[in-house]
Design a binder for these strands. Structure first.
Lengths: 131, 131
DNA sequence: ACTATATACGACAAATATAATCGTATATAA
DNA sequence: TTATATACGATTATATTTGTCGTATATAGT
């Protein structure tokens, strides 16, 4: 429990690699080969980051991805949300339609835990965790 | 991702219920019926809590569970660990045997995120999140 | 002593979520 | 025109989580 997904792991690896190679365009194949990450899943992950302007994409041969300045100031909360949607330790935090709502006696503790985690991730940027 | 398990959810429900009924012994069936939780899984969850003295168990008919004083001072980290083992956003944090260790470029960020979460959970007790 | 009912606990099966793959479309440098 | 890159939806495979089954042990009540 409380695990991050492979998508997030791959995204972290990719942006770190892009930041270390800011002078060149890096293709999905490059990163895939360097770290042993399945190509297609990495491609889709980078597409999500591109549509949020965390990275910039260039099509065609000699194309690839580039880090943007937005990376450093992006919070973990935003980063996770781009890839996986809203962060919540239980689905009922954002969804509704709980069967036991009437008898639920853990709403307060669940909300407190959630708020604490979201507060933590809102105050940590990708730059903060880099070094 | 970053979800808690049903076991943790059920455990939270159970200890809250026990705290609200400290004067009587409450059986698994009582809690199961009150909140619509599968009996066997709830039973095993309470057994784990009992073996860590978070609750106390009494066998035989008229038996059941009782809250202990230890509940309030228990940290979320200990609580989660009793039920699910060590808290880590990636398995490699506690396990070893990673294939890509040589090319891993996210060790620092992963450790920072992990340490932040563990620090958060070590400083939050079950009493803290109750109200 | 017997019976009913509670906890204790390991093994297995079902359901769900995650990870990976496949197929096709589009853009563009050479 | 061709080769190679990103873009993206649909499907399959895998892993994890959740729930069930079966059996043992303890004990209050009769």
């Amino acid at each position: 429990m409380l695990k991050i997904t492979k998508r997030v792991e791959y995204a972290l690896i990719a942006i770190r690699h892009l930041q270390e190679n800011q002078d060149v365009l890096v293709s999905v194949s490059d990163i895939s080969a360097a770290y042993g990450i399945p190509k297609e899943i990495l491609a889709k992950t980078l597409q999500k980051l591109a549509s949020s302007n965390i990275v910039k994409s260039y099509k065609g041969p000699t194309g690839g991805y580039k880090a943007t300045k937005k990376i450093a100031e992006t919070t973990l909360n935003d980063f996770f949300e781009i890839l996986e949607g809203p962060t919540a330790i239980m689905d009922c935090y954002f969804q509704d339609g709980c069967d036991h709502l009437n008898s639920c006696n853990i709403r307060t503790p669940i909300n407190k835990i959630n708020d604490s985690i979201r507060n933590l991730f809102n105050n940590l940027t990708l730059a903060d965790i880099a070094q």
